[in-house]
């Protein structure tokens, strides 16, 4: 007889623990006595904060990969991946540029590449995920159109979706400036020049966007705050509405 209790015994004791039971609500697959019954399956998604974004039951046809191509979910997952990698990058990046001072932004980019552990990999992941997210969001919109999934009662969720697409583009575009290299500077220059042609308010719009008459340190700081805080905040709110409306409007559309 060994001194250590058997693994089953350990599992039982852990699951009987009052702390464990306070963390995992009834029906959680981590709680003792989870059985593969309809009741526990329902409880498993109801009593989990992440899973309960979904309804307890979903239409069977919606599970087919060739219906959704997982595009909306992929966009959402890429957003999460971007948030995680973005938080990592924030530890090593200071949005400070030129104007007589140090070029900290660009210096930090070089350090991320060369000295920070995993810095290069995480930056690459952030950049490629950003492009991918724009792409999957576009495709998601096309998929929704071709399935007529914007029709009543889902009209408003399509509007929310278009707003999310715009926010995705804005997030990507504001992030484009942050490396503060030639690519960033001039891509943003081209983009913001167009805003200057807004009727009547052209000059003002451009001034607000750039924080000055031309791209400079103020632009960098402004776009940094928009990129890491303002737009993700707004996007999260609209995402919540988007997901909530999917459920309220009767789950996934179709079948065709």
């Amino acid at each position: 007889m060994s001194l250590l209790p058997a693994p089953d015994e350990v599992k039982k004791r852990v699951q009987d623990n009052v702390i464990w039971k306070s963390i995992f609500r009834p029906g959680s697959i981590y709680r003792k006595g989870y059985r593969d019954t309809s009741r526990d399956r329902a409880l498993a998604s109801m009593n989990n904060v992440l899973y309960h974004l979904h309804p307890v039951k979903v239409k069977r046809h919606g599970l087919k990969l060739t219906y959704t191509y997982c595009l909306g979910g992929s966009s959402f997952f890429l957003f999460i991946l971007l948030t995680i990698t973005g938080i990592f990058l924030m530890f090593f990046y200071r949005p400070t540029a030129g104007a007589g001072g140090q070029e900290l932004a660009y210096l930090d980019m070089q350090n991320l590449r060369d000295t920070v552990t995993f810095g290069d990999l995480v930056r690459n992941m952030h950049r490629w995920s950003a492009h991918l997210m724009v792409f999957t969001t576009f495709l998601h919109m096309a998929r929704v159109f071709y399935h007529g999934a914007y029709k009543a009662p889902r009209e408003f969720n399509w509007v929310v979706g278009v707003i999310l697409l715009v926010l995705t583009l804005l997030l990507s575009f504001t992030g484009y400036l942050l490396p503060w290299d030639q690519l960033a500077q001039w891509a943003v220059a081209v983009g913001t020049q167009m805003a200057g042609f807004t009727p009547v308010l052209g000059q003002q719009v451009q001034f607000v966007l750039l924080g000055g008459a031309e791209i400079g340190p103020e632009t960098l700081l402004r776009w940094y705050v928009l990129h890491v805080l303002a737009f993700p905040f707004i996007l999260t709110i609209f995402l919540a509405v988007h997901f909530w409306r999917i459920r309220k409007d009767g789950g996934i559309s179709g079948p065709l």
Binding site: L169, Y176, W180, Q182, L183, W186, A187, V190, G191
Partner: peptide, 22 residues
């Protein structure tokens, strides 16, 4: 991922292109 030389407002690269989605 690309990282070009430091931003220089006096040196316009040719061509100057916006991000692909624009």
């Amino acid at each position: 991922a690309p990282l070009r030389e430091l931003a220089n407002p006096n040196l316009t690269p040719n061509p100057s292109k916006a991000p692909w989605y624009f």
